[in-house]
Design a protein around this nucleic acid. Structure first.
Lengths: 229, 229, 229, 229
DNA sequence: CATGAATGAGTCTTCATTCAT
DNA sequence: TATGAATGAAGACTCATTCAT
């Protein structure tokens, strides 16, 4: 699932603590290099999860640079050194987190999109679902945004992947005859930007509109535009 | 014009070195408190400008956290201590810079918008102008984005102001009968998000479309939407 | 015993390494807040003691402002950063030291005073003991004196406490009928001043009189005064 | 009068601004080396005085190390660089000040002592006068005390001179048959210590006794001692 | 004489990372 | 695995002093 970097305990591996498909992933990880930091015991998996949750909370609240390893370990209730049992560096947890959040967003939004009757409804459902998610996980916004400065690769990958998925959907909708799109990539980035900033404004900064309201208005915009008549 | 913080050498003051309208602002600033760091001599104004330019270049290239004061002063060709003759901290130059860039973007785009025949054309011209500006000043993008983590107030102010200006234009266009807008604020943020991400994708990350192409496609989107017919 | 400031490794804790009565205090300190810098291992306690001893020597020799953290850590044989494992700042060691020295002086002098047959003999024994102590620990003088500028609270507390103890003794002696005192507080400060300056002159600056000689002369002064007859 | 160090503007020279005997001193100073910083114009003398007064106030209030040259020049209302027109270093003003204050104390107390009928009365009058002076010039206390760490020579000279003067008076009183003194130097330091600490307690820290009360009690102590009968 | 911009050595402090127990 | 003491490179900031105008 989530990509891995050599020797680092991965979020996928941590999912192993709660998910059924985890055994496979864990085994896979275990088959990795000598520097593998995947936990082998139940106790280890629990600790790893605690560290990851703490890291998400701290990075979300104070940002990458103002978060110290001690902040994370103290919140997780483990000793400082324990951190390095699971991660090789501060950047590494951050990377793991960005991938995890990126996947979480996608997985949360996907079902809503899949259930939509047509291309337009899909975008609307996707945005509404996204807004709801952002409100519930404000720290995600921050972490992904900060990736631009901490781990540019993850940052670009996240937005490139998101845009690609939108473009894919638009392409299908066009082929089905639902929509007419001049340039799928340009339009995909435009829609994504719209969604992201609406998430910022109506998910993170304020909540003076319901997700459905916002999604409805935005959807009308991309459906028929602003020109009267 | 640009807001000031007590005791800090301001960009407004530095503008005085090149702009005619600045004299007023500079005088105003000079009338400030005793701990004022506004330069009182021509030599001082020149040095301040050198430091600001160097800071913009360095922050743009390496980011806030990876830029040291020495990077800035070395590039500016002054001694380390000279930095503190004009700014009280690293954060302070950054803040000054964000405000400066925010104003630069606005001032660069404004004429193009003003010259447009109608509301829709205004948005198109604005986006095209913005894309051109971003390509020429890629560091601005990074600096404003990083403000989210270094100086959240400036960051929010920048985007709020930008959205407000768009909303204002949309409102006028609607009153004139050009456009029909369901919710000016939501639409303004949507359009801004579109623009920002198109700037990121086709201004900073790649240049596989001309500003006019991108602006045309985006403009068609907000004009008529994607629905065929 | 020695007062504590939140989160700082205390001298009381370090006393735990050498004194039997200290265990209680150490346990108490250990029960403190989470940011507590009290060492939890034997190795830690040893290091803390090394730093304190080094700090006393360096501050005594070069003074607070001319002593760098590196001077202390180098003398203590630990790395620079180790200092901050036990103290939050240079001021903090200094404070700890002043309290420690204040207590040391008191504890050194107390037995001599307790063993004296009457009030007058007590002051004499106390002064003689003090002079001996000062000669053996000249740095204490300097550290306590410099506290006036580095940590005024400790400085005043030290002299106020000392004067209070003298006043207490004088009060008892008067009640017993040994002495007749016009104003206990004034007299206590007068005697303390006498002792301190005799310590400066015949303990720190020169040793051209024995402690007993000096104490004898001073005691005669406060016993019968200078008026002949 | 006040001693001079090569090339430094002296307090004696500054006195020249207001005293009649000054011309002589100024001429003397002018006859000094090439690095002489004695002001030659009336304007210069005024500036020098402003700097000295500001320095006394600042050193007294914040202490030597926490006082910057800018604090002094700002309070004096002159530019930073002007300081170095009159002094070669921060230490130098401080030294000049210590000598000045030392002389001021002496000169203030001397008349009261001279007017006393006998040795004992002289000490009493001297202490009362000293206490009054300390109350009016609390900063003096601090400056002289801090000299121990900034300029040990001045510090020792001040107290040695003071003790010497006391010893001289005691010697005379003894020769006249007023008093009987076992060891003039020891007693002189004892009395000085008393006076200094009474000045600290009842001049600087609190004023819950009048100078005369304190002087009376202290005088009774050194006159007849504490032994009843 | 006065001014204030420029200088840069010096210091404290932080914190990611290592490692012995 | 877990712990927490130890490490030291790195970096922001201060401030006495110099000097050209």
């Amino acid at each position: 699932m989530a990509g891995r970097r050599s020797g680092a305990a991965t979020v996928a591996a941590s999912d192993a603590a709660s998910g059924p498909a985890a055994d496979g992933a864990a085994a896979e990880a275990a088959a990795g290099g000598a520097t593998d930091k995947t936990p082998r015991t139940a106790r280890g998996r629990k600790t790893l999860r605690a560290i990851l949750d703490a890291a998400a909370a701290e990075f979300g609240a104070r940002g990458f640079h103002d978060t110290g390893i001690t902040h994370i370990t103290q919140r997780a209730g483990v000793a400082l050194g324990t951190f390095y049992t699971y991660f090789n560096s501060k950047e590494e947890v951050f990377r793991a987190l960005v991938r995890d959040m990126s996947a979480q967003v996608r997985d949360h939004v996907a079902p809503a999109i899949a259930a939509a009757p047509d291309g337009l409804a899909a975008e609307r459902a996707g945005l509404a679902s996204f807004l709801g998610f952002v409100r519930a996980h404000k720290e995600i916004y921050r972490i992904i945004d900060e990736a631009e400065f901490v781990d540019p690769d993850s940052y670009r990958a996240h937005y490139q992947n998101t845009a690609d998925r939108i473009a894919l959907r638009l392409g299908e909708a066009e082929r089905r005859g639902d929509l007419s799109i001049a340039d799928t990539e340009v339009v995909a980035w435009a829609i994504m930007g719209m969604n992201v900033f609406l998430g910022l404004r109506f998910g993170v900064l304020g909540d003076d509109r319901t997700p459905d309201e916002v999604a409805g208005i935005a959807n009308a915009l991309i459906a028929r535009g602003l020109v009267r008549g």
